[in-house]
């Protein structure tokens, strides 16, 4: 498959910190509209992979292309985000001093330059969109609350809501259900599946039950490169994967 038809194309990406190879010639392809789960033991390079895609970390070597042509390694975080790549962090990071509404308004797709934001005022469409997201995430009653006062789960949802407001082509979601109750986990899975229809999604997760619930193609990372790829059942049967997970 050629790079042109892909949404995200990683080839031979390596990163090392002080001699430690966090990514070791990692190659990965995401197709438009695809949802992909990434699993792997601690230190497999999952978060670092997110970092290099979103521009937080610059790879030492390798190619990262978006929509077949744009070289992501040449861009900084904001530029990459504006191409349409959204990211949700492992620990929920929302703007705690702002209200729920303001958090969504900041994330909402709109011109990002300072002078534009200085004179910005929400249009009817903007407000409608924010209302819609508030409904989807169930945060409508708390729209005027400061985000800092939300519960852990609500913050996760708000962050997913912010991703929706951003309307990215590709979403990177880092452990969205860590610390959630079973009911919340289920709801989150449903929400992500809804999103997957219109967007491509990469989910990094430890929780196998959650991954199974998503029912998508799985990539197993180990020591900074891809160990196996396929359905969850297929990779679960893979002897190498079993060895890695059982630490043999």
């Amino acid at each position: 498959m050629s790079a042109e038809d892909t949404l995200l194309y990683l080839d031979g990406v390596s990163v090392s910190f002080d001699g430690f190879r966090a990514l070791n010639s990692l190659s990965l392809i995401i197709e438009p509209g695809e949802m992909r789960a990434i699993i792997g033991p601690n230190g497999a390079g999952k978060t670092t992979m997110m970092d290099v895609i979103t521009g937080k970390t610059r790879p030492d070597t390798g190619t990262i292309l978006f929509e077949g042509g744009t070289d992501l390694t040449a861009l900084r975080e904001a530029g990459i985000a504006n191409l349409g790549i959204g990211r949700k962090f492992q620990r929920p990071t929302v703007f705690e001093m702002h209200t729920v509404w303001d958090n969504l308004e900041l994330a909402l797709k709109a011109p990002r330059r300072p002078l534009k934001t200085l004179t910005y005022s929400a249009t009817r469409d903007d407000r409608a969109r924010i209302e819609e997201i508030l409904d989807i995430t169930g945060l409508s009653p708390k729209r005027d609350r400061q985000a800092g006062s939300l519960s852990h789960g609500e913050k996760q949802w708000l962050e997913i809501g912010m991703l929706l407001a951003q309307d990215p082509k590709l979403l990177l979601v880092d452990e969205p259900v860590a610390g959630m109750t079973d009911a919340e986990t289920e709801q989150t899975a449903r929400l992500l599946k809804d999103i997957a229809g219109k967007h491509s999604v990469i989910v990094v997760e430890h929780d196998m039950a959650f991954v199974r619930e998503l029912g998508v193609k799985v990539t197993v990372l180990h020591e900074g490169s891809v160990l196996a790829e396929g359905s969850l059942d297929a990779v679960s049967a893979n002897q190498q994967v079993v060895d890695v997970y059982l630490g043999r």
Binding site: R76, E77, A78, V94, F95, E96, L106, R112, R113
Partner: peptide, 13 residues
Amino acid sequence: DAESRVRFLGYET
């Protein structure tokens, strides 16, 4: 409050 988060929203902080 969270500069890097703002960057990932696409603002050139």
